[in-house]
């Protein structure tokens, strides 16, 4: 799995709430049998018209905004469990997603792929949107070791929570399967005792 430690980047702001995984990657693009290539259809129906013309008003089509951090409204990633949503975001070049609230399954999927979901307060989220609004190049620093996110321009900083086990997985680049496989004997003992 991809490692994550520290990141300084401008952000792509998507100030919409309840963004579900059908918006992130519509079902008709789930027919692939590999993990790669989903980025080109990220937010497909918000990015393109029915005839595949890019919609200039959508943020991903606006060259003013770029960066490895996607910032979105609360309850990000609700709906379908499709891990393709996390793959698509990562494939489009993002390494972290910030929101004031994440849906459970999306959060787990992101963590299992080295895409860092950062939950901040509503107030801090509003500060990020405000900073980007006044300066689109406004950058954030994400420090996983210290669990902080900082708006560099204003110096405003907030801590975020992450399960300590998941944190060490991200920093070291190992995944749950590596962790469980090393304890297979326990599983077999559990089965016998059942």
């Amino acid at each position: 799995m991809k490692k994550f430690t520290k990141l300084t980047s401008a952000v792509v702001p998507l100030n919409i709430e309840n963004i579900d995984t059908d918006q992130i990657i519509p079902a008709r693009f789930l027919k692939a049998t590999t993990r790669e290539g989903f980025g080109e259809n990220l937010f497909r129906d918000w990015r393109y018209d029915g005839d595949n013309t890019p919609k200039p008003e959508f943020v991903l089509n606006n060259p003013t905004y770029s960066g490895q951090v996607l910032v979105a409204g609360k309850n990000f990633g609700c709906g379908s469990s499709r891990e393709h949503a996390a793959w698509a975001i990562q494939d489009a070049g993002f390494d972290a997603v910030i929101s004031s609230f994440f849906a459970d399954i999306f959060k787990g999927n992101a963590l299992n792929n080295g895409l860092l979901p950062i939950q901040v307060s509503d107030v801090f989220l509003a500060q990020i949107f405000k900073a980007v609004d006044s300066n689109p190049k406004s950058a954030l620093e994400v420090d996983l070791e210290n669990q902080t996110v900082t708006i560099l321009e204003t110096g405003a900083q907030e801590s975020f929570e992450i399960n300590p086990y998941k944190k060490s997985c991200l920093i070291n680049g190992y995944d749950d399967i590596d962790f469980i496989l090393n304890q297979k004997q326990l599983i077999e003992e559990f089965e016998q005792a059942k």
Binding site: S81, N109, N112, D176, I177, I180, L181, K184, E191
Partner: peptide, 20 residues
């Protein structure tokens, strides 16, 4: 409960999941 594909692989490999 529903799981992502990495977890599908986990269950295939170990019949277990890491869950809080």
């Amino acid at each position: 409960f529903g799981i992502g594909t990495s977890q599908v692989e986990q269950v295939f490999a170990t019949q277990c999941l890491l869950q809080s």
